[in-house]
Design a protein around this nucleic acid. Structure first.
Lengths: 242, 242
DNA sequence: AAGGCTAATTGAATAGCATTCGATATTGTC
DNA sequence: GACAATATCGAATGCTATTCAATTAGCCTT
């Protein structure tokens, strides 16, 4: 009985190879034609198998794409972790720079794919790239941020998820802007200003120095900061009144 | 010949009314079931017309949804402009606060719809909400930002489109985070911290004062200027209240 | 107001595609 | 080598957007 449940190694290896072939074919077709544009027949043909066979590996077209996307995101996560491992500086802002550069470039180069991720999620609410996969990916940022806080480089009262949304949200929109402006031209030259701006932003807004200033006594800087907070308070009040 | 080309006013009005009925029905069905889930038959039934008739108004399901979405975005643009018009303070950061609050809440409340906008764009590359519609919407931010620069509240060397991407990108991601955390609970209470953080971020990173601080601490002249602006704001508020 | 012309409307017929399923082939076991 | 269990196949199915030939409503002329 056990023998029927557990195929021999070679058999299992064969199935896994075939699975990879299917995924590879699917990836190509999905990238070329998008989700709706992709034909199961074409994927099958490219993988060199019958249409029905795909369904013994994946329950539906959506799940096939899901598998393709999850592989893709796992790859990205590994790459991002590799980038972080290879950056030698301990400085948070230096590491953030590297991560931002990697992420922005990745998002631009793999724009089709990343769009498919969200298109699937939005279209087919049943099937979506598991939250865990994306969480795993953004965890690379989270670890750096927490470490920056531990090292005292970042404000201790900063909220992690807000910072994360700012990082990835801004970069995604920036990627789109860059794509629109520089049709076809994928040089990283245009990306540098965005990355620099992002790092400067984190330094100005989340850097611990600003906080230290605020905590200081009756310095000019402290006063200045107080005035700013006052301004903000009043403005906020005012807009709430209207 | 001219008479056939130009239907009488009542006739045109009738057609336009029918168009509105179709759009209204389509909107409901699309929101309820998403793009793929929506059945043309159901839309037709809800609009009280035959299926084929829809195709004499719109070439395809995608274009029908496009029309629905464009109406929706136009509405949002008007609302956002209304919010900006109603905020009495001239202070950039106060106005940004109001805009962020409006945008974040809107994105959360209309999440389905906004997702559909991008799902359509990503799925069906032929048809997408015209760039002009979205540009029109984000122009509300652009105007505020430029004005802030003119008033000397923002760094003159800030790049508009980068700031815009940071604003809208961060808020979109934050909206998703908030949606995930607070299932069903749509109180604006949870949104306030995000808005506050965004305003503080702009102040720290794009504010002209912050730059001066970073370049060598606050100056008396700078403080004096801020106090002047505060006075102005308060006076304007006071006259508003009386 | 009747007749004729045009444009609008209809819903049954068409066509494209994911998915299913019965038949067939392959693999592993004794 | 025969049997059981899997895996594979691709034609048949079913579901929908879209088309189209027939019908109806609106408007103008006389």
């Amino acid at each position: 009985m056990a023998s029927k449940a557990i195929p021999s190694e070679t058999q299992r290896a064969k199935l896994e190879r075939k699975e990879r072939v299917i995924l590879e074919a699917a990836r190509t077709i999905f990238v070329d034609h998008g989700f709706d544009g992709a034909r199961m027949q074409e994927i099958a043909r490219r993988a060199g198998i019958g249409e029905g066979t795909i369904y013994s590996y994946y329950d539906s077209k959506a799940e096939l794409m899901l598998a393709v996307l999850q592989r893709f995101w796992d790859g990205l996560t590994l790459e991002a972790e590799g980038v972080m491992a290879s950056v030698q500086v301990p400085d948070f802002f230096g590491r953030l720079d590297a991560l931002a550069r990697y992420h922005l470039n990745t998002v631009i180069v793999n724009a089709d794919f990343i769009n498919l991720t969200f298109a699937l999620r939005r279209n087919n609410s049943e099937v979506s790239v598991s939250r865990d996969h994306l969480r795993h990916y953004v965890a690379v940022f989270d670890r750096q941020f927490l470490r920056g806080q531990d090292r005292g480089e970042l404000r201790a009262d900063a909220v992690l998820w807000q910072a994360r949304d700012i990082f990835y949200g801004s970069l995604e929109y920036s990627a789109r802007s860059i794509e629109m402006t520089m049709e076809g031209d994928r040089s990283t030259r245009d990306q540098q200003p965005v990355v620099d701006d992002m790092v400067a932003l984190f330094r100005a807004h989340y850097g611990a120095a600003a906080e230290r200033e605020a905590a200081g006594g009756a310095t000019l800087a402290g006063l200045s900061r107080q005035v700013e907070q006052l301004t903000e308070t009043i403005a906020s009040l005012a807009s709430r009144l209207s």
